[in-house]
Design a protein around this nucleic acid. Structure first.
Lengths: 148, 148
DNA sequence: TAGAAGTATATTGCACACAACTTATATCGA
DNA sequence: TCGATATAAGTTGTGTGCAATATACTTCTA
């Protein structure tokens, strides 16, 4: 097999492993998040808002590496479920100010067990998980075009 | 911060790192694959077919960990581009037999440089890439429900 | 201070992923 | 052999991701 052939072999592709693992991860979250009536990206938004409220769509997008084309409809769905409010900044009329509703805040309790349950599903030692996280973050860093 | 709070912190989530890295990877492929007029999942299908032709949608799905709901419309698009033919098995009328067209086979040459270009984008040492691949494959294995 | 440039969000269109379901065909078992 | 069961692929509907573009507001600058 030539070098080019080797490179085009699926089994040799780091990116395919990454892609498949990420898909499998989202699938594994589903039964857990169904109980919260959240999708995985919606859950990520809630994770951010449980930490810091009053942020803009821009800031949220920076945290999650997602853009307004993804977040605007997603946030509208969270608003429709009564979990999030999408106010406007008084200082800058362009900016949305994202807040949790009462129900949105309370959902944090129900979500408390999710990380531990997922940890069980993913398995592996703490060292392996930390190594995977570090390698993913390194790849993300290098794959992201410089922001200016 | 409580243990539950720690667990619900975005920065501590392996899964989020995996998810973000996979998204970034697909984004990084885009400019390379645009030249071939392929999306990343379409490229994956072509990788499989460059290795083995005459396989079914089921077999293809096993290789890529994707189902017919994803693959059927994708394969129709590849067929519309003239890269793939979707015949029927004579032995079993339910089964599609996937073949490359002339153009589909020839595209392999144009794709020859893609893996090397992506490798430059992802960066990192060979050891790191192999470690990332192994950890992703391990996670995939554990997250996939047993097939019996 | 008016127009240019920049920024935040929203919209549109396309291509996934996948659950749930349907249809067509094949195989198994009494 | 006939009906039950299984299997392969397709369909439908929902929710992302993201490029490209539009809109509205802000800030910069001549």
């Amino acid at each position: 097999m030539s070098a080019a052939d080797e490179n085009l072999c699926l089994d040799n592709q780091v990116c395919f492993a990454l892609y498949s693992a990420a898909n499998a991860m989202v699938r594994a979250y589903r039964p857990l998040l169904d109980k919260l009536d959240l999708t995985y990206p919606q859950y990520l938004v809630m994770l951010v808002l449980w930490q810091e409220q009053g942020i803009s769509v821009k800031t949220l997008g920076d945290r999650l590496h997602l853009d307004s084309g993804t977040l605007t409809p997603l946030l509208k769905r969270l608003e429709a479920k009564g979990l999030v409010s999408r106010g406007r900044s008084e200082r800058d009329e362009r900016v949305r100010v994202l807040q949790l509703t009462q129900a949105g805040g309370e959902l944090k309790l129900a979500a408390g067990g999710v990380p531990e349950q997922m940890r069980c599903k993913v398995g592996g030692s703490t060292e392996e998980l930390l190594a995977l996280k570090a390698l993913c973050e390194q790849a993300l860093e290098r794959l992201s075009p410089a922001q200016d």
